[in-house]
Write a protein that binds this DNA or RNA. Structure first.
Lengths: 211, 211
DNA sequence: TAGATTGTTAATCGATTAACAATC
DNA sequence: TAGATTGTTAATCGATTAACAATC
């Protein structure tokens, strides 16, 4: 499901090489997945290749777009314009044409009414109205842990169906609302843990311990 | 595996409530997982509870620490001190006592030799040496897509076993090195996709379409 | 004891991979 | 045709969940 995005990114970088057709194993190698998986995924979205020419790059790209994107685009709101919030805002601006960052929210009066990275920052007091009026359906939460649940609740009641959550806590949301957690601390912890495990394995087997 | 971190976070916030013992279903509710899973996970790290008192909070916390943390701590390096890099740096500083941000790297001379959020920024030219000398084993990559692979290669040869990768591409690393991808674009795309799918479902079933 | 919870095994579920006839 | 690739099904794998005797 999220691999489809990876396939598209692979295809988007391709025209420089002038390829018209691609085989499943080529896409697989570039996207870092297995060829079976590529064939299965593309079958699922209903795009057909031909046995000895593979997949048509242009057509596949169009097909992926039709599947992944909303025709009219979707509006996104971000709540919490701290360090992380600003970085995320900057990161997303203009990156996917069909996803428009339409509004940012913060409780700090110093940040309200300013335009940050090309995106107007409103007070959280008017969040409900702005989300409703603009028809925003996607939310990004970069507020502190304590405020996250309340912000999520308000986003959902105002019409948001999907949330990208950077706050280190699990959000309770009604059924039918999708939440993706991006917990930086948990991820770094995991990396550190496996780094340690692998490091120890290496010390046992190999001789060149790095100490 | 990464749930153990969540259990710990739950326990760390608990003393304010003065609880000494916890049942699996309580931990489960707070961490957002199933009670079976909690019992299974705790069994795996070898911590035993008692049938009618549940798990001892203090002992469990200690046990989780022993399992997750390195006694001497682990050093972390971050490469790419742009907007995102600085935000990530700021986010991690002091968040986990056993994970010390020891060095940052950037190719921009304006950023080199400055101290950013309490962390010294070096030139990428000296990355290999600094990583080796400091004994850094964990890396965070927040450089642009094009530079990511080279930075990863150099980190690995210098002694890094685990990488948290924010660059939107999959990294090739030798076996025994762990990579966790944090692709913001892919995640937002997924959220937008499911938001759309759920939104459409709602419009079909419910009457109050938000348009 | 009765009741609730634990450790642990078996059943379920989903996703990934392998395999292979059909096709160009 | 021969060879390589596709669409699609069956086999595999792992993780999650359910169940239940043992225990306090």
């Amino acid at each position: 499901v999220q691999r489809l995005g990876a396939y598209r990114r692979v295809l988007l970088r391709l025209p420089s090489e002038g390829r018209r057709n691609l085989f499943s194993h080529e896409i697989a190698a570039l996207a870092g997945v297995s060829a079976s998986q590529v064939r299965r995924d593309l079958m699922m979205i209903g795009y057909e290749g031909s046995p000895n020419r593979g997949y048509d790059a242009a057509g596949l790209l169009r097909s992926l777009g039709e599947f992944l994107d909303d025709d009219d685009g979707q509006k996104v709101a971000l709540a919490g314009v701290g360090n992380l919030g600003r970085a995320v805002l900057d990161y997303f601006i203009g990156r996917r044409p069909k996803l428009v960052l339409s509004a940012a929210f913060d409780s700090d009066p110093n940040r309200v009414d300013r335009v940050i990275h090309g995106c107007r920052c409103y007070s959280v007091a008017v969040m409900d109205r702005v989300i409703r009026d603009e028809g925003i359906t996607v939310g990004i939460i970069t507020v502190p842990r304590e405020a996250a649940q309340e912000i999520a609740d308000r986003m959902v009641t105002a019409g948001v169906h999907g949330i990208l959550n950077f706050a280190p806590r699990s959000l309770r949301v009604p059924g039918g609302v999708f939440v993706e957690d991006m917990d930086l601390t948990t991820s770094l912890e995991m990396v550190a843990f496996y780094a340690r495990a692998h490091g120890e394995e290496r010390e046992k087997s190999g001789g060149d311990a790095d100490e």
